[in-house]
């Protein structure tokens, strides 16, 4: 190896050789329902993580905690060193680092596809409109939606809307992307076009955390697969090993049902 690159610290004392995201013993309850019961995981820069598991196992809550959409009860979540579980959290700083795509797309229906992509950089990051537009058009092309810039969300198919949602999130230039069951509401034919887009992102080195039911995709694209059940991470490992020889009985039972 050549001489180590100069290590630069960010404002939180984080250096790129440390995990980009670190969760330690995260607990979360909704009323008397314990959704997360001590979850710990690390995500390194450029890694693609897939979280799988039965419904109600806390997968969605887990990734919603990472960008503070859901406040946690105890534990620590650090994103590039920034503590998320902090009452004085600078949400703007956190959310420009973490992009999120939802199951139901959640595009803004009163704005065109291109406007959806441009809104946040212009109004939140106060970037120059012209530059944002150039970038937004490039992003629309990247998700293969040239020519749909002026369409309203209601005029697009589910798969197209989801790709606009991905472009919208990328326009903020996040360091990590969270995907919350993004193909679960799509027709089988359009699932593929969205997965292709995510795979391309992953190949470009984007750090991605996906909650998914697409086992084939997890096996091919993920660097690491986590299996959650009843608010705990039961088993995790590289996909080849994870899918070939699951150790835990619950993992075996789940994979037996879905594969």
């Amino acid at each position: 190896m050549a001489a180590a690159a100069p290590v630069t610290q960010n404002e939180f004392g984080w250096t790129p050789d440390q995990p980009l995201i670190r969760l330690v013993d995260v607990h979360k309850s909704f009323g008397s329902l314990q959704v997360l019961r001590g979850v710990s995981l690390d995500v390194r820069k450029g890694e693609v993580i897939c979280i799988i598991g039965p419904s109600g196992s806390g997968k969605s809550t887990l990734i919603r905690c990472i960008n503070a959409l859901v406040p946690i009860d105890s534990g620590t979540i650090r994103v590039e060193g920034q503590e998320v579980n902090d009452p004085d959290l600078d949400k703007l700083a956190l959310r420009r680092k973490v992009g999120m795509v939802f199951q139901q797309y959640n595009l803004f229906p009163h704005r065109t596809a291109l406007q959806n992509v441009m809104m946040a950089p212009i109004n939140v990051l106060k970037q120059n409109r012209k530059e944002v537009e150039v970038r937004a058009r490039a992003l629309m092309a990247k998700v293969r939606l040239q020519g749909k810039e002026d369409a309203y969300p209601g005029q697009l198919s589910g798969g197209q809307q989801q790709r606009v949602a991905i472009a919208r999130s990328l326009a903020m230039r996040p360091d990590v992307m969270l995907f919350d069951e993004v193909t679960a509401a799509l027709d089988p034919e359009t699932v593929k076009e969205v997965l292709v887009t995510i795979r391309e992102l992953a190949e470009e080195g984007m750090t991605c955390i996906l909650v998914t039911h697409e086992m084939g995709f997890a096996r091919e694209v993920a660097d690491h697969v986590y299996f959650t059940d009843k608010g705990l991470i039961v088993e995790h490992g590289p996909p080849a090993e994870f899918f070939a020889n699951p150790k835990d009985e619950r993992t075996k039972a789940f994979l037996g049902q879905v594969l």
């Binding site: 949400k91 703007l92 420009r96 939802f102």
Partner: peptide, 13 residues
């Protein structure tokens, strides 16, 4: 739908 709020929140609005 609450998804509109969530999407806006995750985009740092």
């Amino acid at each position: 739908p609450s998804g509109q709020w969530e999407a806006a929140e995750s985009l740092a609005f």
